[in-house]
């Protein structure tokens, strides 16, 4: 995957950490909002690294655009003067809160790293390499399932490893060693247009024709297919929620309901 993916990841991660710290440290809400906008752009970069192209665009449009415009509008409408902000004072309360945040982070971090089996990470990489080499030589790789406590937390998130795992999964479906119930998706059947998923077969075709690409993953098509099929009820409920939010915001912000 070259040097760019890790390099960009570390740049975006550091940027996201710095700007999100700035959001809670800076005193003026306007500067906080600016830092938050930059933060959202770093998040969009991370989404692109995760091949979530559509979500990256939505992140910039909805978060960086709509929501932050709302925040900036309110900040400027309120027009807080410097004395309104109150003096910055450091109290025991702050120290306890920061300690609580640190404790939270270490709790989550330990929980995450406890389920990671370092040996399995190495094993997963070797398997990915074996599959990649076998594909190059045009032969079939024989993969042995490694038992794991939480299957797959170990996988590298680069395209090669993902493709290898994906092909192995597809192969096991075809050979009948795994049933669709084991995985989430059943193979695509064109006679059942409402059996959603971003079709496995279609993905395989794309992977086959465009080496090194993960096909349709993360693009608009599978998201729209999922939204209007399997997730159509939550989607419609979201519409109702947004309508309720619009009406609620209007009624609350109005001085007096006539």
């Amino acid at each position: 995957m070259g040097i760019w993916e890790p390099l960009l990841f570390w740049i975006f991660a550091a940027g996201a950490l710095i700007t999100s710290s700035a959001v809670i440290v800076l005193r003026n809400p306007l500067y906080c909002a600016m830092a938050l906008i930059v933060d959202f752009f770093f998040f969009a970069g991370l989404y692109v690294l995760l091949s979530a192209h559509f979500m990256a665009i939505v992140q910039v449009l909805v978060y960086g655009g709509a929501i932050m415009v709302l925040f900036l509008f309110i900040i400027m409408l309120l027009n807080l003067r410097d004395e309104d902000l109150g003096e910055t004072r450091f109290s025991l309360h702050h120290a306890v809160a920061v300690l609580g945040g640190l404790a939270m982070f270490f709790f989550i971090g330990t929980a995450i790293s406890l389920v990671v089996d370092k040996g399995a990470v190495a094993e997963g990489r070797t398997q990915a390499a074996i599959v990649a080499q076998a594909d190059e030589e045009g032969t079939q790789a024989v993969l042995i399932q490694t038992p794991s406590r939480v299957p797959g937390l170990y996988a590298d998130l680069n395209e090669d490893a993902l493709e290898a795992g994906f092909k192995a999964r597809l192969r096991s479906f075809e050979e009948g060693t795994a049933t669709p119930a084991d995985g989430k998706y059943r193979p695509f059947d064109p006679n059942q247009p409402f059996e959603v998923p971003p079709s496995l077969r279609h993905q395989e075709d794309r992977i086959g024709t465009v080496p090194g690409r993960t096909g349709l993953y993360g693009t608009t098509q599978p998201i729209s297919v999922l939204l209007v099929n399997r997730f159509v009820i939550p989607f419609e409920l979201t519409a109702i929620l947004l309508l309720a939010a619009i009406i609620g915001a209007m009624i609350i912000a109005k001085r007096r309901v006539a």
Binding site: F9, A13, A16, L17, I108
Partner: peptide
């Protein structure tokens, strides 16, 4: 970057 890196980054930002 692996999944763990993303999870830890996310945990850090959540704590912030």
């Amino acid at each position: 970057p692996t999944l763990i890196h993303y999870l830890l980054l996310s945990a850090a930002i959540f704590s912030i």
